[in-house]
Design a protein around this nucleic acid. Structure first.
Lengths: 344, 344
DNA sequence: TACAAAAGTGGAACCGGTTCCACTCCGGTC
DNA sequence: GACCGGAGTGGAACCGGTTCCACTTTTGTA
């Protein structure tokens, strides 16, 4: 366990001053005679010297690092998002600190503190919805914040990247309405989140277009955490006048909901047509393969990274941006026309 | 965008020296009069002061941070591993830098450099199998390395946490042999990895126990990346004397393999009995639900973290450790007795 | 009361980079 | 030949913490 060499080791081995070595390390920071540059580079190689990030960070004042704060990596949506963000960031020479919140505001607050301590230049997050002042403080300290997928209404000047939630939910609903279903269950996210509200709005809007009234009983907004999706699915199916269609618009609850449907043993699509949000890899391995709204996770990752890096480099106008990307509806075999009472 | 306060700001605001503030910050580093401690804490709170990690790191020489190097967060196995590690680490006050390699040795090498620059105290990794000298160098610089799930035979003195690979593969194989199957396909990881080799060994050992000879044609070792699992599944089923059982022991290829089986339309378990490694959440949502070898990801995470932290704190004997945890066989409905030529 | 030990405190060096600045060489220009 | 500007260089301050050490004050004990 030899200890790593420092810039001063390199300097003395190369017979130059630390200033010169530093200039070699940071090409645009000043002139170096070509011959010396060669020598220094050779010595660096021989010694296996690598500058320590902490030292640079201390004198520069910031790091080429961003934080990624998601609920739960065990959820494929977040996992894929993280994968893409980490991957994409690397190609820009930026490191990513991944933090998970388990949807717990306290853990979220902790994560933000940690990121602050690490002097990250930006944060990409799917916020829990709390910690308003904490997010604001982060921004006021110059940390660039971009929300993905969800936003917090109280925080107006934060960049946001999400799918077209209203439109996506409307299209899914209209697809079912078009098949003749009139009682369609909706399992959405909490109304305290933008995502939850927008998707409910899209659902209602579709009903409106079809001049079909909305039964509030059929709308279940459940938390992201826990087994709320499964319970909601169970209770919807237990309704006297039970729905013939189900849209699961809470990505965190898809698995739980589908598992419950399988347990109950409803026949899909004969007894129940189903559309879920998010094209998890397994959705086409179930039988029947599920029709899904596919969130273009790559796009979410790319755009949010672009935003946060753009802000870090100060090459974006100050006004907050909202980027909405289109989500595809991918029909598979989990929806069928309503046969019991066929449409006119 | 006001700028953050420093320890000297706190010191002067509290009317004490920086030494005192530092001692308040690090409780066991020296005595502080209770009254002054109070004052300092109050000032810290008022100013919203937080010590900068980089400064501390620079003077201490290391960070309470570990690196986690996995192939691909989009793979549920790694994603869950990452989730557990991050989670568990946090409860020990340790941060985790998550890096992905996409199974590419170059990217792996980059990641290790980055982690080195950040002065991490330890690394938990599923190594690609290359970069032998790089791993060795990392160790010689005092970075504690723990491999999870796979190991590199050339690197003898690295801690390893994995499941009982030989035993797991044997149990799965014996289960099928016990059902009367004699031609069982095996899709495993590359033989260049310990995992790949051990699982093939278990498969062979089971055959041996049942005095059934092994047809080498039925063993397919495919890379972790790409669609090798699907292709192997396809080609196994295209064999003239095609297998009646299939064990997918390459966790990264399960999805690809199962997808192919679904595409081909083999009836499971009637035409083909199937066991896969890894209890991904969706394996019980397929029809039929798949029998799996369940890797206790929590255990893998906990043990590897324990090892790496233990080494960082120097409270472990120097000899490298290998921890093997038991993997459960979870029978579901994807295996049935061989009916064509029933066992005696 | 005397004196050693322990508690409490602040000054300053240090960790390993970056950067400002002063200084020395050059060559080119009037 | 005097002068100027720019290339090239090194010294030293600085970033924000930690820690050693010397010093003063308090406490405990004989």
């Amino acid at each position: 366990m030899k200890k790593a060499s420092t810039i001063r080791d390199v300097a003395s081995a190369a017979g130059v001053s630390v200033s010169v070595v530093s200039r070699v390390l940071n090409p645009d920071s000043g002139p170096v005679a070509p011959a010396k540059r060669e020598t220094v580079l050779r010595v660096i190689d021989e010694l296996g010297y690598r500058p320590r990030a902490a030292a640079r960070e201390l004198s520069i004042g910031h790091t080429p690092t961003i934080g990624l704060v998601v609920a739960d990596l065990a959820n494929p949506f977040f996992a894929q998002l993280a994968d893409r963000v980490v991957w994409e960031a690397r190609s820009h020479g930026v490191q990513v600190m991944v933090m998970t919140t388990q949807e717990d505001p306290h853990l979220e607050a902790d994560s933000l503190d940690t990121l602050l301590d690490r002097s990250v230049g930006g944060v990409i997050a799917t916020p829990t919805g709390s910690n308003i002042e904490k997010w604001a403080r982060l921004q006021s300290l110059g940390v660039n914040v971009v929300f993905v997928d969800r936003s917090i209404p109280e925080l107006a000047d934060v960049d946001l990247v999400s799918i077209e939630n209203v439109d996506s939910a409307r299209r899914a609903t209209e697809h079912m309405l078009g098949l003749g279903h009139t009682r369609i269950g909706l399992i959405s996210g909490p109304v305290s989140t933008s995502t939850g509200r927008s998707r409910i709005e899209g659902y209602k809007s579709a009903h409106n277009n079809f001049s079909i009234s909305v039964d509030p009983q059929l709308i279940r907004d459940v938390p992201f955490r826990g087994d709320g999706g499964g319970d909601a699915a169970g209770s919807l199916l237990a309704l006297p006048d039970r729905p013939t269609g189900l849209i699961v618009a809470n990505t965190a609850q898809v698995q739980s909901s589908v598992r419950r449907l399988v347990q109950i043993g409803v026949r899909i699509p004969d007894e129940l047509s189903v559309i879920v949000f998010d094209d998890n890899p397994w959705t086409e391995l179930t039988s029947p393969p599920l029709s899904v709204i596919r969130q273009p996770i790559d796009m979410l990752a790319v755009h949010s990274l672009e935003l946060v890096l753009g802000r870090m480099q100060g090459r974006l106008p100050p006004a907050p941006r909202t980027i909405e990307v289109k989500a595809d509806f991918v029909p598979r075999s989990s929806c069928s026309p309503l046969t019991l009472s066929p449409i006119s």
